[in-house]
Design a protein around this nucleic acid. Structure first.
Lengths: 132, 132
DNA sequence: AAGATGGTCTAGACTGAGTCTAAGTCGCAT
DNA sequence: ATGCGACTTAGACTCAGTCTAGACCATCTT
């Protein structure tokens, strides 16, 4: 699989890919580091970051910038959108087919579209903290 | 204006609000810090962060989580979407009225919608780096 | 066999956005 | 005057992510 995406397979990359693709999921670099080290051999922090970046550049996984202070990596590369629960931190998917987006993007001159994503932010209904 | 939003006006808060609302714009906390200190009296880093957070909680401005390693603050609170140029870092707006989104969000039980935003990522047409 | 080459991995130092803390200031009520 | 609560501040601190310099390892050369 790695070879199909033009990536030299190494033990560390195989371990990380194995973890990521056991099921579609959203993981932070830290979680990948911890879980790889728990389930497979030891992999260094630098290698985890390098490998995740490599996978992103080669299209095996997607970066998701939703949480305020860390990047998540999404092993589902099918076109889809996200629902983010701001109270629990839970992140779930909306298949692209379920939403239709129409209209004039009015893209700036000389640019071409790279991706389009909808983020729906929700709160747990109980948590209506009267913010001060 | 601050009072209308339930915020005690202080000199620092007035300065920061003044900077933010001179025109609709996207600024990082660092930029706010630098520009306030250049144009008005000295304000500390902690106060800038506290004040921006306060403004967000009270709905004067919005957080925008698009850049990988810093938070932007958007002084345009009208409902709108964003176009992000991944090459230049430039961020521009799409008025909500220009896009129509239809479909079944399938929100998880017990949650209510807080906001919905579309992010369109674009690249400058020249920059097609053959990634390795 | 003995380098030489190039890609990968690693520990640990480093950076920088954002948070925290403990002390200081200010306005206001008693 | 004194006390109190709200705000601000400098600087220490945290932690995700990057960088660096060296180690490792397979393949190629001679």
């Amino acid at each position: 699989m790695l070879e199909r995406f033009g990536i030299q397979p190494t033990q560390q990359r195989i371990d990380i890919a194995h973890l990521l693709f056991q099921r579609p999921q959203h993981l932070s670099a830290d979680q990948v580091l911890a879980q790889v080290n728990a389930a497979y051999g030891h992999v260094s922090k630098a290698t985890v970051y390098n490998t995740l970046g490599l996978f992103v550049r080669h299209g095996l996984i997607n970066e998701v910038l939703i949480e305020p202070d860390r990047t998540l990596y999404d092993s589902n590369t099918a076109d889809h959108h996200h629902v983010y629960n701001m109270d629990t931190g839970e992140l779930s998917d909306i298949p692209a087919g379920r939403l239709a987006i129409q209209g004039d993007l009015g893209l700036p001159e000389g640019t071409e579209i790279e991706g389009m994503e909808v983020v729906v932010r929700v709160r747990s209904r109980a948590a209506h903290s009267a913010d001060r």
